[in-house]
Simulated assay, not measured.
Amino acid sequence: MAVTVKPLTERADAAWDAFVAAFPASTFFHRAAWRDVIARAFGHAPLYAFAERDGAIVGVLPLFHKTSLLFGNALVSTPFCVYGGPLAADDEAAAALTAYAADKMRACGVPSVEFRHGPAEAAPLADGWVEGPARYVTFRKPITEDDEANLQAIPRKQRAMVRKGIGNGLASRVDASIDPFYRIYAESVRNLGTPVFSRRYFRLLLEIFADCADILTVLDDGAPVAAVLNFYFRDEVLPYYGGGTERARSRAANDFMYWEVMRRAAARGVRLFDFGRSKLGTGAFSFKKNWGFSPTPLRYRYLLAEGAAIPDTNPLNPKYRLMIATWKRLPLALANVLGPPIVRGTG
């Protein structure tokens, strides 16, 4: 039977998530609940759609109309997520979802559609689509139930940093405490010259993904010095939003933090550690390689209107250098006020 494309409604959420759970190349960012998180936290309009054949879902497309005065408008699958492009069981479903995105691009009058394909091999490029530049990689690695084996798999110099954190008497706790996490994360991203997300966004993540998200906080003499918000999907852990204070670096708290995520995740049956996306040539890229993770390129795909260019909100873009340098010098309280309205357009 022919494939039809239908907009996602709440009644179909369970069927959508069942398809995602069973699809080998799916990721945490394909879950239907991201539609509500991003719409409520950032105000972007969801255009989620699924391909159906004979009453069964055979493909899904999480898609948003992202709007920003500073950074422009676009359709993105999926903003604020490192993966999240369309999933399709066959070529017909893939073609139908790609055509849906093209139709929405014209209807919304935006210059581009972006598909953020994950680390699994994507389908051949559709006509008119282009592959983005080699800008991002992801780091994923199997782990075992054996803590010592996981520790020995970390290269010697990085392993020494983990042991230093352990030797410093650092401790960790896991809960859903937003305020200590937010204080640490806001300071960390300000120091990098990056606007911070709103508290509301993180509260929504922990509320909507209450069954598969938590915060690990590192304590030094009882004081929080580093924290990371983690997601769990099938047998994977994704430490996604993390940071540390100035004290964290000298105490090896960031190294200890990711080891604790790995150790605790392994104990609950997790077998894949997803260290997430990093930009080539950055400190985060080097840090993850030092843990013994091999980078896998992420080549996002774009459909561009005539005369349009691939969007580039990358902080390494030279046109943002002055803004980043200025942001690093802002008082933290001011950065926390100004950041959320700006960051909603970066996506």
Rank of each mutant, 00 (worst) to 15 (best):
T9W: 08
K66W: 08
A223V: 14
L204V: 04
V76I: 11
R264A: 02
C212M: 14
V237C: 05
R183H: 09
G281A: 04
G59F: 02
F80H: 01
F231H: 01
R321M: 12
T27F: 02
T326I: 14
P124A: 08
V37T: 09
R190M: 05
A149Q: 06
L322Y: 14
A93L: 08
V270A: 07
V110N: 01
L332F: 07
G244E: 03
A186L: 06
Y48A: 07
K288H: 05
A134K: 15
G222V: 12
T78Q: 10
T9H: 12
R199M: 06
P239C: 08
D211K: 10
A101G: 03
A176H: 15
P297L: 06
V58K: 02
G281M: 02
D220S: 05
F293V: 08
L272M: 15
N150R: 10
P62Y: 00
R299S: 11
V20N: 01
D220Q: 04
A186Y: 00
F293L: 13
L332T: 09
S26Y: 00
R11F: 15
G345Y: 05
L219V: 06
P224S: 04
G43L: 07
L238I: 15
G244Q: 05
A176Y: 14
R321H: 14
A74V: 09
G276V: 09
M1T: 14
I184G: 00
T194Q: 05
